[in-house]
Design a protein around this nucleic acid. Structure first.
Length: 403
RNA sequence: GGGGAGAUUCCGGAGUGGCCAAACGGGACGGACUGUAAAUCCGUUGGCUCCGCCUUCGGAGGUUCGAAUCCUCCUCUCCCCA
């Protein structure tokens, strides 16, 4: 990464604030940027990650991109790995209970997490600081905790939407969860954060950092939140809905996923995930939606892989879906000859059970060597020449006889 | 410590002795349509040697010709009071 002559504080402000949903406060952000330039001291920009799960998707990448922007402007990202907070579970999450994580799990999750984040952010020690919050939480005794807890009020916490909602639904809200924002805020005190970045559901937690810093006589951090990126179907992006794009997906997969984004998500995806200028974006969006989406997919695959790979992913996508051709890289396997079709599909791993196979066949979803197959119990002869089986639009296999 | 409520097929959630492999919704899958989608429509959604058979309704027993539904014990969860 190159650090050329630093841009002026005001142009830095423009760049930073382009895609954020809250800034607390604009004025202090401007001031901090100016002061930083005068003193030559980079701003410490904090971002917390929870090592409770390991799959990072491009929705998570939105705040990290902002972190990257700061990094490019010469400031210092400070990543906090919440190995202390992880033991609480995440109160902003769903209502399911998270079992307490073991030390190894946390360890493992943090490294895979960092691997993935490394796609978006330069993690070299010279330009990025990585801390774990167990570092300071482990040292606190019960009275320290009480002192911290006195910073918040129950009323204030109860205002939080997710608590309110869960109370209304008669779901449990555990006492320790109330400490989550306080712990997060304490991180800010510990690392002397000048700025904290989070998703826009994190605003409350970020505010807590300001509060605690002021109590400690520190300069309060600027809170920046980024808009929520919705999933390919327009719902909240989440692994459980299957509408997410993992940061580490294979190029072809990634391209295909982006192509399945609904049209009305496109503007957001362009703004939040590419570095194209607003003018350019609106020009693209005026063209044919399919072209625009192709461009979006190309930008994203280029970003997370490279441009050559993006081009070939585009071609593969085109031939498989637009021209309905068969993909090049069909998985192969070898099986016994003369199995009933339904059993063959199951053995080849194309369906989950023979019953499933029968259903799919009955519905006209199976082709053998390009010909629609209708009889689930037809015996399929195999030979050295592979027999191509297609299930639905996406599942293919080349099967030859096992010798 | 006391008092309630509950555990159903991927998820949510009906069902309170036979008509239950289990309503309905979501998701998923297949088909049609299409711009690759989305939306819409149709169909499927426990397993199998599949027009029949087998195993499911927290776990273990029991009552009955017959239980997801009734009884006993156990495990777990939630709420309220203290």
């Amino acid at each position: 990464m190159t650090h050329n002559a630093p841009p002026s504080p005001s142009s830095a402000f423009e760049r930073i604030s382009r895609n954020v949903s809250d800034i607390v406060t604009e004025e202090s952000l401007r001031k901090y940027l100016e002061a930083s330039q005068e003193s030559g001291r980079p701003l410490r920009v904090k971002f917390g990650i929870d090592p409770t799960f390991t799959h990072v998707h491009i929705g998570h990448a939105v705040p990290i991109r902002l972190l990257r922007t700061f990094q490019e402007l010469g400031h210092l990202p400070v990543l906090i790995i919440g190995d202390g907070t992880a033991r609480l579970g995440d109160p902003t999450g769903r209502n399911e209970q998270r079992p307490p994580l073991s030390l190894e799990e946390v360890q493992h999750n943090s490294t895979t997490y960092l691997d993935q984040i490394g796609k978006v952010l330069d993690l070299s020690p010279e330009v990025c600081e990585v801390r774990r919050n167990s570092e300071w939480f482990e040292e606190m005794d019960f009275f320290d905790c009480l002192r911290l807890a006195s910073c918040g009020t129950v009323a204030r916490l109860l205002e939080r939407d997710d608590f309110k909602k869960r109370m209304a639904e008669r779901l449990p809200v555990h006492l320790h969860e109330m400490h989550y924002p306080i712990m997060q805020g304490w991180d800010s005190v510990q690392v002397r954060a000048d700025v904290e970045i989070g998703g826009n559901d994190q605003l409350f937690n970020l505010h807590m950092g300001r509060l605690l810093q002021e109590r400690e006589g520190h300069r309060p951090q600027v809170c920046l939140t980024t808009p929520l990126l919705l999933g390919t179907d327009g719902q909240k992006m989440s692994k459980t809905y299957g509408n997410h794009v993992p940061l580490l997906s294979e190029p072809n997969d990634m391209f295909g996923k982006v192509m399945s984004v609904t049209d009305d998500q496109m503007p957001d995806w362009f703004r939040l995930l590419t570095s194209l200028e607003e003018e350019e974006i609106s020009k693209i969006l005026q063209g044919h939606p399919r072209e625009a989406k192709g461009r979006l997919a190309d930008e994203i695959v280029t970003w997370l892989h490279n441009s050559a790979v993006a081009k070939s992913a585009a071609q593969a996508f085109d031939s498989q879906f637009r021209k309905k051709q068969v993909p090049d890289d069909i998985p192969e396997c070898a099986l016994e000859s003369n199995l009933p079709l339904a059993n063959l599909l199951k053995e080849a791993g194309l369906v989950s059970s023979t019953s499933d196979a029968r259903r799919t066949i009955k519905q006209g979803g199976v082709k053998v060597n390009g010909e629609p197959a209708v009889d689930p119990s037809a015996l399929i002869p195999l030979g050295d020449e592979p027999t191509m089986i297609q299930v639905g639009k996406r599942r293919f296999a080349n099967i030859r006889e096992r010798s």
